[in-house]
Design a protein around this nucleic acid. Structure first.
Lengths: 218, 218
DNA sequence: GGGTGTGAATGAATTCACAGCC
DNA sequence: GGCTGTGAATTCATTCACACCC
């Protein structure tokens, strides 16, 4: 039986970024020192992270870029909870991994801005739907995935087995929309509003607020 | 002489969110348990945070909402580094605090989405300028602060004493734009691109990437 | 020399525990 | 009873130190 890896969030987030770096890395090898220079993280921390994910293919002159990228993709694509969750649709994106299905709630300026940037390409996430209560937006906006009126949310989320949502509605609608998402079965929310969401313990929220971030770069 | 408060980032970010909650709190008092229910943070953690900022006005039936909000505003508006930095323009927003000046780099769909949502109202930040290399955007877009062609960046950032930037350019331009911002004197960047920015040690970066966040709500 | 792998040591953040207050 | 204020205890994250490898 395979050992199940339970990564600390801090490591996980670094790995996501490391993947970005590796994607654009032209050389065949990469060292922990080079990564350190690109990121500011201590090289020992990077080695420690790779140790945590059980990657020990490094030799004294660095890691093989491609091998490392594959290993990271593997560990990021599939988490403990997934193992049990076999009824998910298996989309064959990114080399046969299970895909996590995502929707966007709210297609105002902010939500619409997410439509055209191929947010999740080359990641284990797949945007399956966008929702807005404004019918006009739903009809006019173009995107690579289907857009629906908010009234169909419950139905579409179940049908498409969507588990995660990006919340991009106006602040005033954040609370009610969150309730609806949770009722529909959403398990994790990326919150782009300024509202602090009140959710049950089993629902995960990540706040992606500019105000928060500004306070950290001071 | 006043004691200078040096807050851990983790506490700081919670305080920013706590401020949001307090703003919308209708009752006159609030307890750490009530905050805990709204956020999921342990109530002891909240009390500890308030202890760190030296707020000990609580009595056995909770904190005075208004008093607490004032205290948090005070501590968030001004950080250690500011004390020395007296040459900043003092805008009299939010009750006489020093304001941190911010600009937006990149006014595509994403950057433009930031224009109309009054991002920083009621915070110690003030958006002073938006930049884009596309002249048309600069002229057509409406906003409460002035927009400039990217060519004037260097000049405007110095003139307006802008210290922080929100980076919202397309991924391919992220690296060069970052260099230009730093050359112009920017000290902190909120990075909304998917690129991992390479910056000198003295520059702070906060990554506000959806991909990162999605990986955390799994 | 410069690199990795790895546990131990340090440093941070969170939680616990409990006295004191209303 | 339920609350705050506070240090100590614990848990978690990062850094160090060093053996081993090329």
């Amino acid at each position: 039986m395979n050992t199940v890896i339970k990564l600390p969030d801090s490591t996980r987030i670094r790995l996501v970024q490391l993947r970005q770096i590796l994607k654009n890395w032209t050389e065949q090898k990469i060292t922990s020192v080079a990564i350190s220079e690109s990121t500011g993280w201590k090289s020992s921390l990077i080695r420690h992270d790779l140790w945590l994910i059980g990657f020990n293919k490094g030799v004294s002159n660095g890691y093989n870029t491609k091998e490392l990228l594959t290993a990271i993709n593997k560990v990021l694509g599939l988490k403990e909870s997934d193992v049990a969750y076999t009824e998910n649709t298996v989309d064959s994106e990114s080399s046969g991994n299970l895909c996590k299905n995502v929707c966007i709630a709210g297609l105002g300026r902010l939500g619409a801005a997410l439509l055209d940037q191929n947010l999740t390409e080359d990641s284990p996430f797949l945007i399956k739907a966008g929702f807005d209560s404004n019918l006009n937006r739903v009809e006019v906006l173009r995107s690579t995935f289907p857009l629906y009126p908010a009234s169909e949310m419950q139905f579409v989320i179940k049908k498409e087995k969507i588990e995660y949502a990006i919340l991009a509605v106006p602040d005033k609608d954040a609370a009610t929309m969150t309730e609806r998402l949770i009722k529909a079965g959403i398990k994790g929310i990326v919150n782009m509003t300024n509202v602090v969401l009140k959710v049950p313990k089993n629902i995960k929220v990540e706040n992606l607020s500019i105000l928060n971030s500004l306070n950290l770069v001071i």
